[in-house]
């Protein structure tokens, strides 16, 4: 089950490498980002905001809001981790959506070894895919002529749809998209996204 997901992760990272390269992020920064952040949607968010001439503050705020879910995910499985704090710190970095979900699917509770095995393989695939994408991105040429600017919204749409598992999630998404749309003409790049995040607070108040 893990092999196809690792291939998909490498392919996903490859598109990150291509887009980061054509957005002018250079070689080293995208590699460092894949090694430290290791979370697809947040990495694409940073590329997207910076590519649209948004500020570093807007890029950081958007990415942190996307990764905020890792706090409750990590807390939900915290009791499975063993050993001294530095070891738990390193192991916790292998928590990603896929490795976490795969671990939960096993019967009889949470197995931290499945998380470490799956997460470790995904980590290797993620960084190798990023490197490959950077090489490919360097030979791709003018990104907009190739339609790479249209790749971003399609990608975010593909990431959004699996999130819409409840009525609250749907209303948060509709509100978030609506707020962003209204603010686009009136605010600098990145602000509509941060304001859209406010929909999460409003959405959680609905039934």
């Amino acid at each position: 089950m893990i092999a196809p997901i690792a291939v998909a992760a490498a392919a996903f990272a490859l598109s990150f490498g291509v887009l980061a390269r054509s957005a002018g992020m250079g070689w080293v920064a995208p590699l460092v980002m894949s090694a430290t952040t290791f979370a697809g949607s947040a990495q694409f968010a940073v590329v997207s905001v910076l590519n649209g001439a948004g500020s570093a503050a807007a890029a950081i705020a958007a990415a942190v809001m996307l990764n905020a879910r890792y706090a409750p995910i990590g807390i939900s499985i915290a009791s499975s981790f063993r050993g001294p704090a530095p070891r738990r710190l390193v192991q916790s970095q292998l928590i990603v959506d896929e490795s976490w979900a795969m671990t939960l699917r096993r019967r009889g509770g949470f197995d931290v070894h499945v998380l470490l095995g799956a997460g470790g393989l995904l980590y290797l695939a993620w960084n190798a895919g990023t490197l490959l994408g950077l090489v490919l991105g360097a030979v791709v040429g003018d990104p907009n002529r190739l339609g790479l600017d249209a790749a971003f919204p399609a990608l975010f749409l593909a990431l959004l749809l699996p999130q819409l598992r409840s009525g609250r999630a749907v209303s948060a998404a509709l509100l978030g998209g609506g707020i962003a749309l209204v603010l686009i003409p009136f605010s600098p790049a990145g602000i509509p996204i941060i304001a859209g995040a406010g929909a999460a607070l409003l959405g959680s108040g609905t039934k």
């Binding site: 949607s41 968010a45 997207s48 649209g52 001439a53 958007a62 809001m65 996307l66 905020a68 879910r69 706090a71 409750p72 600017d149 971003f152 919204p153 975010f156 749409l157 990431l159 959004l160 999130q163 819409l164 609250r168 999630a169 749907v170 948060a172 998404a173 509709l174 509100l175 978030g176 998209g177 707020i179 962003a180 749309l181 686009i184 003409p185 009136f186 605010s187 600098p188 790049a189 509509p192 996204i193 304001a195 859209g196 995040a197 406010g198 929909a199 999460a200 607070l201 959405g203 959680s204």
Partner: peptide
Amino acid sequence: AGPVALLAPAVLAAFVVTAAVGGDRAI
């Protein structure tokens, strides 16, 4: 926990919209 769970769909939807039709202070 409630708002944190809804951050990802809200932010991703905002990204879909801004990346699809966002321009320099214009739709």
